[in-house]
Amino acid sequence: MTPRDWRIFVITALFIGFFPWVVQPVKAISHYVDVMVFAGIFTIVCLGISLLMGYAGQISMAQAAFFGIGAYTSGILTARFGLNPWAAMPAGALLAALVAWVVGIPALRLKGHYLAMATLGFGVIVHIVLSEEVAWTGGPSGMVDIPGLQVVGLKLKSELGWYYLVWTVVFLVLLFCFHILHSRVGRALRAIHEEESAAEAMGVPTARYKVQVFVLSAVLASLAGSFYTHYVTCLNPSSFNLMWSIRFILMVMVGGMQSLWGALLGTVLMTFVGNEWLHVFADFEVLVYGAILLLVALFLPKGLVSLVPRRAAARSI
């Protein structure tokens, strides 16, 4: 990480640390802590998307499916088999990794529109399976009574506990991603994005890296899905459909695909927009989403971080 990244890191961490202290006493916004728990969970997904799409340039419309694989694996293993949630979490991640690997090897030979369609099709298939395997997943009506999380023997009851747990994970994942980016692996990923055959000719095994970063993004989405399950303690396939994949991408795009800070900013912003301010539109929320998506893609394709003065931006990754 560059010194500038460290500065932003410290400032963000301080902000996140003190945020509940500020909003909780104010009744009207005390539930912002709850919104921020969701924002944190989504950020974990979106950091993966930033690596995969923003840096490595590989499109995936299936991130909600991996989110769902983690969520349902956790839900099923804990609610139906009584497994400890902390043990179910890696199981979900493993399954997501396996699925991503099997799908990724053939899929990532495709590029552009084809890759988008392939991942989109895969995401829809996962959604169909979640809706159809009623015996396991509860079908369209979903699952309820999924156990919550326990941390060192204590049941994690308060939103505040969840808040600090989730955001600690977010910052760990953030560090992990930053370290990857500022290394030979990160350079290889960006090289694949910019000039794939040149990268290949300079000794970068592009196929392997693409699959690996796809698997990493799937694992992150799956982890986030597990946290989500234990936080809301009920599941419904509609949280894992194509629209959610698009929402995740929109979050990253709003902040800026090619910046981890952008992914974080966009996710928090769009989670607030989605959870807080779009409710007035009820069913027509989706229209607003479409409009934001279109406007961002047309007029701000590099996201909010591209509005940061150029000199500063050029120095960070």
């Binding site: 350079r187 290889a188 090289a191 300079m202 000794g203 990493l216």
Partner: peptide, 11 residues
């Protein structure tokens, strides 16, 4: 990046 084939650290 050119050093890639002579180095090894992974994810």
């Amino acid at each position: 990046l050119g050093r890639h084939p002579r180095t090894r650290s992974g994810f």
